[in-house]
Nucleic acid binder design. Structure first.
Length: 280
DNA sequence: ATCCTATCCTGGCTGC
DNA sequence: TGCAGCCAGGATAGGA
């Protein structure tokens, strides 16, 4: 599923194809995808605008729009589970799962393809309040190990649900949480306020390393869903230490990996590398 | 404050 | 082979 590394990859690859392009009359095939304002307002707000800049915040791809050189709102795009962004020739046959299509000048089209329809492709007049619910960027300078250790101590939640909470830390999902916890030697049920400071710093570093390595490999693809905008799969799935590897040997110690459920999420771990402390 | 459940969706898998 | 039923999974809302 698209998490921070996949979204970063999408933003990077789509950027050169979108920046500078002028948007045409959008076709909305699934109204919910464009949010509460509805298809008519969406189409009106987008048509004629130019994409000035493409960037990422957490798991959102954001397009800054302008008209006659002046700011004219934004697109905030969330892929959720199965969303994809395609920039292709207008003549290309659209996917049956295309939910929104926006024609571009110079003969291209931006298509938001989303099998499960959970994704969002919304127009925002401003970004005021739009990202208020998000915690820090894990790869940002302001997110340092000392801060993370302090914030873990301030909560008393199980590590895995806490790390999945976008208001605590923005951008991790099911895959990279499992990977980072294994690399840090921490059990997913461990309570956040019982993680020793040194181990919290280790977790901080492993989260960053995991995300950086995944971005280098253009994210992870293990089913038919996530592809780069070029249609290529990522390759980080080959580096997985635990995700989807239940029943296989731990690459660190050889013990058979297990899959449990934590907060209604499939959770993969090594019970030797990530021992459950007597007191979770 | 934290936890739990339901909701949104559909393709793909399981079991009969 | 066919089909019904179940499930994953990010985010959010509402209840315990």
């Amino acid at each position: 599923m698209p998490e921070l590394p996949e979204v970063e990859t999408v933003a990077r690859l789509v950027r050169p194809k979108l920046e500078g392009r002028r948007l045409g009359a959008a076709i909305v095939h699934w109204p919910r995808t464009v949010g509460d304002a509805g298809p008519d307002a969406f189409t009106r707000n987008v048509e004629g605008a130019r994409v000035a800049r493409v960037w990422r915040r957490a798991k959102y791809v954001v397009c800054d729009l302008e008209r006659r050189g002046r700011p004219a709102g934004h697109l905030s795009i969330h892929l959720r589970m199965t969303g994809r962004l395609h920039v292709e020739p207008a003549a290309a046959e659209p996917s049956p799962y295309a939910r929104v299509e926006v024609p571009l000048d110079r003969g291209g089209v931006l298509r938001f393809v989303d099998v499960r329809k959970f994704g969002r492709f919304e127009y925002r007049p401003t970004l005021d309040g739009v990202f208020d619910h998000l915690g820090p960027e894990p790869l940002g300078d302001e997110w340092d190990a000392a801060r993370f250790a302090r914030e873990l101590r301030a909560r008393s939640r199980q590590l895995k649900p806490l790390l999945l909470d976008q208001s605590f830390l923005a951008g991790l999902g099911n895959i990279y949480v499992d990977e980072a916890l294994h690399r840090a030697g921490l059990h997913p049920l461990r309570r956040s306020d019982r993680v020793p400071a040194a181990r919290a710093r280790r977790l901080h570093d492993e989260i960053r390393a995991t995300l950086a390595e995944a971005i280098e490999r253009e994210g992870s693809s293990f089913d038919t869903f996530y592809r780069t905008p070029e249609g290529q799969p990522g390759s980080y799935q080959h580096q997985f230490r635990v995700y989807g590897r239940q029943g296989k040997p731990c690459r660190t110690c050889g013990r058979t990996l297990v899959k449990i459920v934590v907060g209604q999420r499939g959770t993969h771990l090594c019970t030797r590398c990530q021992p459950a402390p007597r007191l979770l």
